[in-house]
Design a protein around this nucleic acid. Structure first.
Lengths: 239, 239
DNA sequence: TCTCTCATAAGTGTTGACACTTTGAAATGA
DNA sequence: TCATTTCAAAGTGTCAACACTTATGAGAGA
């Protein structure tokens, strides 16, 4: 009935070739925002973007609506759309939700993990410890990312994985996030090891707790830095 | 600087008056989908909708993009957008994530709940038990909704509340959901009572478990019905 | 000099029209 | 009768132009 068997399409790059402009622009803009190329609070000028990408405003507006739904930008009627600016309170909220999601991922993974998955995680763990020992942050960062991706993907719950990724992306909107880079690498690794141990032991409750705590710990580290930073900045800012 | 003090606007209905068409249409379409007025798999014809609402296709397309991001519809290039159709596997996924979110809500609420909140929940609880005893489903349903809303709002985490609501809405896309109406009312009430007890006791861990289990239990009830329904339908369907 | 008014410019909200793709069925051929 | 081709209708993707709102700055009045 709805079989996708006709000779048209079905090739992997077809989706990219036939992708509507709005989709392409949405990805483009998202990466510009997440990468920090567009700063929080900055305005997204429609005609300016249209000119820049060589398209009309229609597709731009559609892309922006999608970004709005994802929580990356905020639209104000008749004024424009702005890159979302996260308050410390919102960051705390995001981290709490992320902790719950990651805890669920750990729990599900512990219930269904194969030997292959466990050894893959252990290999990543070893590589990360090596990188941490060498203070090689450039190597550590992508490994860390892969490690977390492997866990949420391994949970087998795609909805969960998508949500988790969305939250991680949104957290990139927070200005001070880069400050934590490499903060508490040793602590993080100790937590990683416990997570894998719980998964290997097929202990869902332990795994959930370990994964949850890992994110909660990252939250605490970040908030501590933010507080210190605020204390150092002696000038008082209203609001 | 950005003070909303000028004489323009500031009235509560101003947001509604100045709301762009795309926003209005988005809400309208969403309610049509969630209410079942538009069935899963059904196509959203742009020009048909434009004519129906008396607007052009631009705002319609923008609204649809927002709905796509929220997971209510699925867009296929050059073919159209369709109301999302949930498989049983996806429903299971959604329920698992919802359980984790609701567990977090219970945990947070237990950490910060005031006397007023607890007594409000207890009042709702009593009313629900009364309705259940009278087999008054029309009274029970909105009370149940208010009860759950009070919990997620009471958590104090707006991000969490928004996410939870989104998931509940998405679950309405599942065809067999209505079958559970009133299924296991007594069981549900027993679980509700435990949840409130945990909150009143200010016991975060207990509260989280109780809230989590409540959603998990709802999932089990639904899946059981689905399985029975599938068994009754003797005709074998591929896929 | 300061404040208020008002006109101009910039930008968003919306529209109708055009181009390309897909779909379905009629027409053609074996 | 059946398969293939062709063509028109429907629908989505994109664009350029118009309408309305907001922001900015110059000028008049005090």
């Amino acid at each position: 009935m709805v079989s996708p068997s006709s000779r048209t399409a079905a090739s992997p790059d077809d989706a990219a070739r036939n992708a509507p402009l709005s989709k392409v622009l949405c990805d483009q803009l998202e990466s510009m925002i997440v990468s920090g190329q567009m700063k929080p609070g900055e305005r997204l000028n429609e005609q300016q973007l249209a000119q820049r990408f060589g398209v009309s405003r229609g597709p731009i507006r559609e892309a922006v609506r999608a970004l709005e739904g994802a929580g990356f930008v905020e639209a104000v009627t008749n004024k424009g759309v702005f890159v979302r600016q996260l308050t410390v309170a919102e960051v705390r909220e995001l981290y709490d939700v992320r902790a719950a999601l990651f805890g669920l991922a750990g729990r599900l993974l512990a219930e269904r993990s194969s030997e292959a998955t466990v050894s893959k995680l252990e290999a990543l763990l070893t590589a990360m410890e090596q990188a941490a020992a060498n203070r090689d942050f450039d190597a550590y960062y992508p490994l860390n990312l892969t490690f977390h991706e492997a866990i949420v993907d391994g949970s087998g719950n795609q909805t969960l994985a998508a949500q988790y990724r969305a939250f991680v992306k949104r957290l990139n909107l927070f200005r001070a996030r880069s400050l934590v880079q490499g903060g508490g690498l040793a602590v993080s690794n100790r937590e990683h090891r416990e997570m894998v141990a719980a998964i290997a032991a097929r202990d869902p409750v332990w795994a959930m707790e370990a994964h949850w705590r890992h994110v909660a710990s990252a939250k605490d580290r970040l908030l501590k830095v933010v507080r210190t930073e605020a204390d150092n900045a002696l000038g008082s800012e209203d609001r």
